[in-house]
Simulated scan of single mutants.
Amino acid sequence: MNKPLPPMKALKVFESVTRTRNLTLAAAELHVTHSAISQQLKLLEEYFGQVLFLRNSRGVQPTGAALKFYAEVKASLDRIADAAEQLTMEGKNRIVRVNTTPSIAMRWLIPRLSSFQIENPRIEVRVTTSATDAIADLTESFDVIIRRDAHQLSGYECIRFLDDVSAPLASPGYLERQHISQPADLRDASLLHLGSRPEAWNRWLSQAGVPLQEQLRGQIYQHFFLSLQAAVAGLGVAMGSLELLEDDLDNGRLVQLFPHIVLKDVGFHMLYRASADTGSPLQIFTNWLHLMGSRPRYP
């Protein structure tokens, strides 16, 4: 660049004085003395060969030429500041560490992460899973913890961000073999139970007005994936969270029975560090989670 530039320190002083209209305020803002401000302004006026400020009892007043120059100087300094911030952030690790259960990770979070990464290519989301909903035994530090139901953890905020609506689900093949036209018919069906939610079928049948005179029979599975696969394979009717089963319902692998009768639980929650700064990668990610969860698909 061959074009001469005014002294950069003087330009910064010029911008502050023009904006504040006060030498004392500019000195405090730039952490220099009142005398240093005056010297830099004198240097700039000598450089341009003209007066840039008119002094009065209330402070200083920039001339018309100074105001035109100020608009360009401010825009240029702002662009330099933005470029410097981007360069600084490129040299830093912008990582958000997330812990959740395998079901939520594989059936809800990971399928949506590509949209977040496209919008935020400089933020890396690292997802790890825990076998249970318990958080007391976590040995690592995480920025976000996603669980069914609310939890308390020192240093974290907890908010509900996603519905938890469950309903009976079966494969088309099973429904061809097993006559199910009303909720009471489920008492004769092969019910698939989930060990972590043993009361789900009783709650749903009670809500549907089906009297229960004996303990429900059926296979018990210790993991959501196993009960889901059993339902897809035509082994019976499972009780599943609809928010985690969009693909299976859209592709016709599973069919929701009696859509007007559902179980509504307290919902999925996220715990996130309470110290998240405005505009930080953590806040950007939690805002995105909340947005994704606020798009309910089921009643």
Rank of each mutant, 00 (worst) to 15 (best):
L175H: 01
D248W: 13
S181F: 05
L216V: 05
L263K: 11
A184V: 12
S166Y: 03
L216K: 03
Q219D: 14
H179I: 02
F225Y: 13
V165N: 10
A274N: 08
E214T: 07
V232G: 04
S280I: 08
H179Y: 04
A238H: 00
P198Q: 13
A208R: 14
V266E: 12
R197A: 13
Q182M: 10
S171N: 01
L254D: 01
G234S: 09
A230G: 05
H193N: 04
S280M: 12
L212T: 05
L162F: 01
S206V: 11
L194F: 04
L186I: 13
R187L: 15
A238I: 00
G236I: 01
V232S: 06
C158L: 08
R177Q: 09
D248Q: 15
G155C: 10
G209W: 11
L216D: 06
E214M: 04
Q178C: 11
E157Y: 13
S166V: 08
Q219G: 07
A274P: 04
R187E: 11
L235Y: 11
F285Q: 13
F225A: 15
L245Q: 11
V237A: 05
I261L: 14
S190L: 08
Q215R: 07
L282N: 01
Q213N: 11
Q283W: 03
A170W: 00
Q229S: 11
A274L: 08
E176G: 03
G155M: 07
V255E: 07
Q222L: 13
S190P: 08
L194W: 05
S196W: 05
P183C: 12
R203S: 09
A208I: 14
Q207N: 04
L244Q: 09
L254E: 09
L235R: 14
K264I: 10
M270P: 03
S181Q: 12
T278E: 15
L192P: 00
G155P: 06
P198D: 12
M270T: 06
S196E: 09
D163F: 06
Y156H: 13
Q219P: 06
L192S: 08
G155K: 14
A238N: 07
R203E: 13
F268G: 02
I180Q: 04
